Computed example of a mutant assay.
Amino acid sequence: KLEDIWRRMLKDIYSKEKKAFDGEKMTCAELQDELKAILKTKRYLIILDDVWTAEDFRKIKEVLVNTKMGSRIIITTRSDEVASQADDGYKIKVKPLEAEDAWHLFRRKAFPRTENHICPLVLQECGKLIVGRCDGLPLALVAIGSILSLKVQNVTEWGLFDAQLISELNKNVNLNHVVKILNLSYKYLPDYLKSCFLYCAMFPEDHMIHRKRLIRLWAAEGFIEQIGNCSLEDVAEGYLTELV
């Protein structure tokens, strides 16, 4: 809730000045006014991590007054819509790790007590297969590398883990935070895309899904809404582009 954000920000600001703050009984409007009044006198750096919707960010920006004193706001987001709120010159798109960096990060976690984190030669082929499944995502590399550091270091054990990786993601408590990230990504899909996304589970793993066939199947299932004079296939093309 936005009022919780205002309270947290005010509490942090007051704590820096060693002042007590009790905003529990203040309304959302009162909290906003208090925050605006304080920030007008400050040169500030505020970081907002993992912003999900552009509408929420617009509401937050209304309170973060520009004092013309060199203040800055940094936001992180996985949403292109949120990122579009920033000018082009101020956007940094974090890309997945290159293969060499991904392998290095994985080795640091999988072999934390080995000198220079060297992977045994017999495990390299299987290890690189597992790293490849992480698609350069640091969170996945760290979590999976940490799990493998606790397993017996032989080809049989690692091969079994690779074969059951999807199952491991769902049942291993040490990987729950990865599952939560994936669940959040699904949760914040627009409703009209959720059914389209889930429908892809009808196809076998690693199956090549042809674009035209997929959008016709979506239309046949009734997932595509009629928009103006556009054909259902044209609307579905837009859905697919957005989903990708």
Rank of each mutant, 00 (worst) to 15 (best):
L2T: 14
E3N: 14
M9S: 12
K18P: 05
F21M: 07
K25D: 15
K25I: 13
T27S: 15
L31R: 05
L35F: 07
R43Y: 01
Y44C: 03
I46F: 08
D50H: 07
W52H: 07
T53Y: 11
R78Q: 09
V82E: 03
S84Y: 05
A86G: 06
D87G: 14
D87S: 13
D88F: 10
K93L: 09
P96G: 04
L105E: 00
R113Q: 04
E125L: 09
C126W: 01
K128N: 09
L139Y: 00
A140D: 02
I144V: 08
V152R: 15
T156W: 05
W158Y: 02
L160H: 07
Q164N: 12
S167C: 06
L175P: 05
V178K: 02
K180P: 01
N183V: 08
L184A: 11
K187M: 09
K187E: 13
L189D: 09
P190C: 11
F197N: 06
Y199C: 02
A201H: 04
M202G: 03
E205I: 10
I209E: 05
I209S: 05
R211S: 10
K212C: 11
A219N: 10
G222E: 02
I224M: 05
E225A: 14
V235I: 15
G238D: 09
G238A: 13
